[in-house]
Write a protein that binds this DNA or RNA. Structure first.
Lengths: 154, 154
DNA sequence: GGAAATCATTATAGCCACCAATGATTGTCG
DNA sequence: CGACAATCATTGGTGGCTATAATGATTTCC
């Protein structure tokens, strides 16, 4: 029964994706509860946050970075734009694109969402020291940065 | 090391939940693609895996550990039971409970799913060294272990 | 012995993910 | 120049996932 390589070696690695998904379900639930108090949803928070970090970008780039389907993004941006949290404008350089940019109201609302999210984050991360949190942050950013490869395919 | 550029104080902590959710979307997509080749879904994989690790347990415990709502769990277990991958039996000690247990076929299918998932996992974790993966694994397990507190509320 | 709690289940509604198709715009090549 | 393919946003539709409330069976507590 030469099964030396089934579990022992890959076991430490083989649970990681499952662990990430599992943890994300807790994190997403807590975040959703926290954001619900200000009538915001996780996706809206994620989009606003990404726009604040990545400046004016096309809808396609938003969708790729956050893994949101362009189809779903349309309605999502419609809502956020209706609340004047962001603006869509044709890219002068390529009129097929819509450049999406955060407004002042958007930044303000994002800041409020951050305050609401802090409690959820603290609950989730309480077993970790500040050093460990920083290290985890670096690791995860490395992973999402690697993300979809150079061609955008995931 | 303090970058005043973006977010002053809470920056190191405040992005983590969002990062986890974002990473999980990539991971879940890749895992789903890999499992689709054998007509299995992420939740089914997660349930089978948890049953293999935690032995015969009640449906409620499965739902709590994996953050799957008991309502959804019913149909999910129905499917898996129809394929004879697990069995439900009344707990003799408490006849309200259904004890869920993996069958031989279930373990076999789980092993196959692991093989399919390995490639997806390798793709996602490629920027990390084995040491870093092990460290990440420990950190995440610490977080999911802390999970919902002693009372099961999340 | 009876009220409250627990567990699985059903039914329902809302959100989200993916696919295919359309219209507008741009880039390519003969 | 002019057909043709590619890209971007958008729409419509389908299916899956998630959460809430209500029901029935069983157990626990007083």
């Amino acid at each position: 029964m030469a099964l030396m390589q089934t579990k022992p070696a890959p076991s430490s690695a083989t649970g990681l994706v499952l662990l990430i998904v599992r943890l994300s379900r807790m994190a997403g639930y807590r975040l959703g509860q926290a954001l619900a108090s200000m009538e915001m949803r996780t996706h809206e928070f994620a989009v606003l946050n990404h726009l604040a970090e990545a400046g004016p970008i096309s809808q396609q780039e938003v969708g790729q970075a956050l893994r949101i389907n362009p189809s779903n993004l349309v309605g999502l941006l419609d809502l956020l734009e209706a609340d004047a949290l962001l603006v869509r404008a044709r890219d002068p350089g390529d009129r097929r694109r819509h450049l999406v940019e955060l407004t002042g109201a958007g930044r303000k609302r994002l800041a409020g969402a951050w305050r609401a999210a802090e409690q959820a984050e603290e609950d989730l991360l309480s077993p970790l020291s500040p050093t460990e949190r920083a290290h985890l942050h670096d690791t995860l950013e490395q992973l999402v940065g690697h993300g979809c490869g150079p061609r955008g395919r995931c």
